[in-house]
Amino acid sequence: MASDQQTPGRPQGRRAIARARRREALGRGWRQFRTHRGGMAGLGILVFFTLVALLAPVLFPPETISVTQATGELLAPPSAEYWLGTDDSGRSMLALLAWGARVSLTVGIAATLISMVIGTSVGIASGHYTGFGGATLQRLTDWVLVIPFLPLAIVLATVLGGGSTLTIIVVIGVTSWAGTARLIRAQTLSVEGRPYLERSRALGSGNWHQMTRHVLPNVFPLVLTNTTLTVAIAILSETTLSFLGLGDPLRPSWGSTLDQAFSNGAVSAGAWWYIGPPGLCVVLVVLSFTMIGRALEQIVNPRLGRQ
């Protein structure tokens, strides 16, 4: 509405106003977020793991996780030197976990980006176009939603060639967008019925303009919330796919470490330090994204506030 009051000759001012309003909305959101204990706890955990991931090369030089240059005893329990013990090649578990954080977070975030771009585009388009195209996209969404994730992901990864981080990112990205698309579609439909969109149509704006200028800003808060929840799922999926042996053996994520532990008999050796910590890291990071997502959900949709 503010843009209507601006004179057309001053796009600068208009943009500045939009920026100021966005900043104000962000500030308001942050203040609300701060009152949410679970959300703040999640954010704290996430900041910790992000720092660990960023600092991994400094804290643990690359040779510490090299199989050939490992210095520790094989499969040794925690000690003063190796706080979390060693794996079956004598590498420090602590170093493996720090390096694993890099892979798990990267894959989780990159896969989520792909998933969100596909999900949001399909969702908006299928809600916006009422004809055959929209119906087809909706059908496609329903289909992908029903097909069980892991078998599909396994099949896709086999076709694309396993053993690469990129494959895992793509596979998770293209199999996990359907839920987002359905959510965004529902929101788009409700936005489409609002008067300002009718006004925009009456003024002769095109489909692209309507979708990017009117629908997208309105579904954006939902996209944001959904993103954090999708990262949680993507990290879990990465762990599962890596555990099944589809990860890059040279860049071990937490899931690949668990795969190695399992394949090399850590379970029957009772090497709990080899199996416990990687899974615990996954739980903490996934939980932190989930908590942040729930907090954002309450801010975006106050009706849920009572939960």
Binding site: A232, L236, T239, T240, F243, G255, L258, A261, F262, V267, S268, G270, W272, I275, G276, P278, G279, V282, V283, V286, L287, T290, M291
Partner: peptide, 25 residues
């Protein structure tokens, strides 16, 4: 439940297996 929901199910299985199958602690 949120914690369980964030857990890779095979990891939980391995932990139970170590504690109650193989025997630990």
């Amino acid at each position: 439940t949120l914690t369980l929901y964030s857990m890779p199910e095979f990891w939980l299985g391995m932990i139970l297996l170590i504690i109650f199958g193989v025997g630990a602690f």
